[in-house]
Each structure stands twice: as C-alpha cells, then as structure tokens.
Amino acid sequence: MIKFIIAYDDNEKEDLSIFFKTCAQELIARLNLEIHEFIEWNHTNKYLNEIYIDIFLNNIPYTPFVFLSYSHGSEDSLVGENLPYLSVRSNLDAFKNSLFYTFSCSSGKLLGQKLLEKGCTSFIGYKNDIFFAAPYLAEFVECSNSGIYSLLNGENVAVALRIMLDTHNKKIDELYQDNFFVASVIRDNRDSLIHYGNKDAKIDDFAFGQ
C-alpha cells in the first residue's frame, strides 16, 4: 500500500483552480483506490493551510509517502489563498524517505533543496515561474501529470523525468504551427523542470505496511 497526499488549490475565485483541480482529480481517478491510500488537502475541505498541515506533519508516523501538489508557489513555499501552507519553516522531517512532486512556481529553488536536506528521496518541481494557458487545459494537465503516471506504471524517476520532457516536446510539436505563443510557454515550463535526489527510485519504494 502506498499513501498519497494530494494537495491542490481548488479556490473557485481563481481561473487557475480549474487546472489544479483537473490535475488532481485525473490523478485520483488513475489511482487504484483499493490498493492505495490517499489524502486530499484542498480549499474545499479547509486542509490547505499551514496550521492544519503543521499539526499533520508533527503527528504523522515517519513512514514513506508520495506527496503531490498543484498550487501557487514561491522559492521557499507552496501557497494557497495567498498564504504558504508548506514552506521551508514547516516540519519537513516528515518527508524523510518520501517522493515529492509539485506543479508550482519556483519552489524547486529553495523548498526542493531543503526537502532533500531533510531526507526526501526524490523531488520533482520547477525552478522558475511557470505558466498555464487557459484554452489548453488538456495539454497542460497531460504535461503536468505524465511523470506521475509513468511512476504509477512502475518506471523509475529517471524514466518519469524523460517521459515528462517527451510529453512537453510532443505538445510543443503539436501546437507550434497553430499557436507558437503557447508552444513557447510549454517549452519554458519544460526547461524549468528540476529534480533533486534519487533517480532510481520507483513507486513501490514508498510502500508501507506490507
């Protein structure tokens, strides 16, 4: 059994929440819920805030898990409703031996490095500002989730990263003749991808309770 924590900003006041929510819900639909355990942190269930997450992280048993987030971000934090919900100041010890993927701006710069220092096995994120083009929801969701899907299919992190790059390239090639502007944004997102940690890790490495 693998525990997945999926954090996403579904604040409906923002257009971007449609993207975050679609990424998270497509992923949840792909998880075999009979085999895996998953927890959602979002705006609707009011868990996407620093107080709740601090309590959670201070009480979670130190077993591996997979953490996935789709939200705003900054160099040192993940942000929901204008406030960080997870940052370099959080109890990142809880992420020891875990896998961390985030679609958020710039958090690859400091937060990712700090997670590695705290023993996170593998971090995949973005080092710069990233963009989403509203008329191309399906394309951006596919780029964002392709790496996680390949991990779920049993590939290791190195292959998942390769598949993420290939998916971005495929979307660039499909789009650039009709919409070179959006293709150029996808290329920029692609080159902002960053990884720290173990590239040989596979999803089964994060199982617990077997």
Binding site: D15, L16, H72, C105, F131, F132, P135, F181
Partner: peptide, 25 residues
C-alpha cells in the same frame, strides 16, 4: 511578430488567457 499574432488572437476572448502559477492572470 508576436504583437501582430496577439492582435489577431485578441478577438477570441477577453478571459484570462495565460496564467502565471505565481498568480498573475
């Protein structure tokens, strides 16, 4: 070239088109 293309696209929508994930729409 970019300006010319965007002017042509402008007729499509007045909704947010590109959203920076750090919040700027």
């Amino acid at each position: 070239a970019l300006e010319e293309w965007l002017v042509l696209e402008k007729g499509i929508s007045v909704d947010p088109y590109l959203i920076k994930v750090s919040k700027q729409e």
